[in-house]
Amino acid sequence: MATSDQLLVVIDPVARRTDGESVRIAKDVLGAGAATKVCLPEEPAEFARAVERRGSRRLVVVGDDRTLLRTVALLHHRRELAGCALGVVPVGGTLALARSLGVPCGAVAAARAVLDGTERRLDLLVDESDGVVLGALRIPPLNGVPEILPGGPAGRGGGHGGPGGPAGARGVWGAAAGGPGNHPWLRTCQTLVRTLATRPPRVTVPQHGGPASARLRVEVDGRTLVDLDQPVTTVSVTPGHAGAAEVEVRPVSLDGEVNTLRALGGRVTVSGPDFRYRADAVVTGPVRTRTWTVREGAWGLTLPR
């Protein structure tokens, strides 16, 4: 059983390079309050080995939202998520997910929360390819989306943290940490290949210049919330409370009024023409169907009391 005074602190390489001062502060605060072992992985395999060999130490990761996602996905795939109370010190450029979960974004406050906080059990969305969603997913993705994980279209085995990219680590880590994917010319070629290899989603742009729409079927616990005959502008799914996901669908307005459809359920299926979706910090697709199931209290996060 992990003990609160023994910590394994795994520091993401991107955090070390982008904000070394915050990393140093976090190490000092954690080291002053607990017995710590610090790990500085440079590759996804090293990161995975450090997590797997943590023993009785409580796991603390220092990094951005992608580090958090990578860690939860890895523990989920190893079926060790239920027994791990994860601590997070957000450092890096993308921290919206950590902030939305209640993690303090200052290095000192976050480190003190790891030392003095309490574990909170949170729901998790898991899709049929074993990908995980911690915060929310949105269809279609917002503009300015991050790069899509490699491994082929998610509908054929890829996905957010799914088997198509081990724990979502290799594609995310390589592009961000200065690996081969970080060369501009290579990223350009990869983007071109992905564009040519996949069909774009069938999206309708109204004549009057309003928001783009797509035709999707959204089912919640087997009940159809919206069908293919009703174009929609957005679909969002968020892990809620007590094992129920919160689903919101915004149909295309024909009379100037927007009537958002809402539902709660433990199983959500979206299907239709090829579509992409943003799950937390990662864009996946195109896919033709995807089902997310809520896992109640599936993971533990140490948060301020």
Rank of each mutant, 00 (worst) to 15 (best):
E52R: 14
V203T: 15
A50M: 12
T198P: 05
A32R: 03
G240R: 01
R267H: 01
A177C: 13
L68H: 01
L115F: 02
T71S: 06
L115K: 05
G297I: 13
E257L: 11
V294K: 01
A107R: 03
R121Y: 02
P141E: 08
T195Y: 13
L7F: 12
T94M: 09
E21L: 06
R262N: 09
G83N: 13
A26Q: 07
S253G: 10
G63E: 01
L74K: 03
E119Q: 12
T36F: 05
W185G: 11
A85C: 13
P150F: 01
V89L: 11
L192H: 01
A26W: 02
V282M: 09
H183D: 14
V133S: 10
V62F: 08
V103E: 04
R99S: 14
V282W: 00
E296Q: 14
L59F: 12
D12M: 07
T289S: 10
F47K: 04
T67D: 04
L216H: 03
A35N: 09
L8Q: 08
S253Q: 04
D19L: 07
K37F: 11
P211Y: 01
G83E: 08
V29D: 06
R295N: 09
G179H: 08
T238F: 02
G131D: 05
R199I: 06
T18M: 13
T224C: 14
V103A: 05
A214G: 09
P201F: 03
A32N: 12
A154Q: 08
R58P: 04
R199F: 08
C105N: 05
D227C: 08
